[in-house]
């Protein structure tokens, strides 16, 4: 059974249908990426899963449980975390407090301490700046904090929306390296990216979204090699 399964998910903003029946699966241990143009419905797919924007029809099943009636703040407790587009760190809270908010639903003190250590090991810059307000960090540091904060929820599935947006190439490489590390440590990842080439290079499988529908899917290497994808998303 897949860790995450979307069946014919539709989502609307007023009269506009942003998702016109999306079906996809994510198996435990995978990195799956969603690629597509702006407005294709990538972010809406993620908000439909985390429940910030509930689907108008269709079902989202995580680990055998239908999320239809689960409030977004309860989804985290099931082991699914959504790190939203634009990082969305709490700007006037310190770095350490931001990470603490990631552990909001947990009470295993020892486990939380261990995860703090894990995040600081992965992103030493966050340790250096732990007492600093998150809003004063650079874009790359904020992205690291957003990923670290998501890790603090102890997720089994991490939804990552545009982690490379607006970052310098060196930082982007670092972020993608971390995504792979997390995956190797057992976190399943659903990655939305405008940087299709890099996403396809680290992903196991990929879905291509066009105006709210899945138009192609398969192993990431095949999608990367597809001439239509190369023409539309890789600029070749």
């Amino acid at each position: 059974m897949a860790l995450l399964e979307l069946r014919d998910v539709r989502a609307k903003y007023g009269a506009i249908e942003a998702l016109k029946g999306i079906s996809l699966t994510v198996e435990a241990g995978e990195i799956v990426t969603l690629i597509g143009a702006n407005g294709a419905g990538k972010t809406t797919t993620l908000t439909s899963i985390s429940g910030l924007h509930k689907p108008s029809s269709g079902s989202v099943v995580f680990d055998g449980k239908d999320l239809g009636n689960v409030a977004p703040h309860d989804v985290v407790r099931l082991g699914l975390v959504h790190s939203p587009e634009g990082r969305r760190v709490f700007p006037r809270m310190t770095v350490a407090e931001n990470l603490e908010m990631g552990a909001y639903t947990r009470d295993d003190k020892a486990g939380i301490q261990a995860d703090f250590a894990r995040v600081y090991e992965l992103f030493p810059v966050l340790l250096e700046r732990k007492a600093q307000a998150a809003g004063t960090l650079s874009g790359g540091e904020q992205q690291m904090l957003a990923v670290g904060r998501a890790m603090m929820t102890k997720p089994r599935l991490l939804l990552l929306d545009e982690p490379s947006l607006g970052l310098a190439p060196l930082i982007v490489a670092r972020i993608f390296q971390v995504i792979q590390t997390l995956n190797q440590q057992g976190v399943t990842i659903l990655l939305v990216e405008q940087n299709a080439r890099m996403a396809l290079k680290i992903a196991h499988r990929a879905y291509v979204l066009e105006t709210g529908e899945v138009t192609m899917s398969g192993p990431a290497a095949d999608v990367l090699a597809d001439p239509r994808v190369q023409a539309a998303y890789l600029g070749e």
Binding site: P72, H73, S83, R88, V89, P91, R92, E97, Y104
Partner: peptide
């Protein structure tokens, strides 16, 4: 802390499990 987080970004607060 949940109050501050909610004041600064309610959606992100929800995603961290804050009611």
């Amino acid at each position: 802390k949940a109050m501050r987080a909610t004041a600064q970004d309610p959606s992100a607060a929800r995603l961290m499990g804050i009611d």
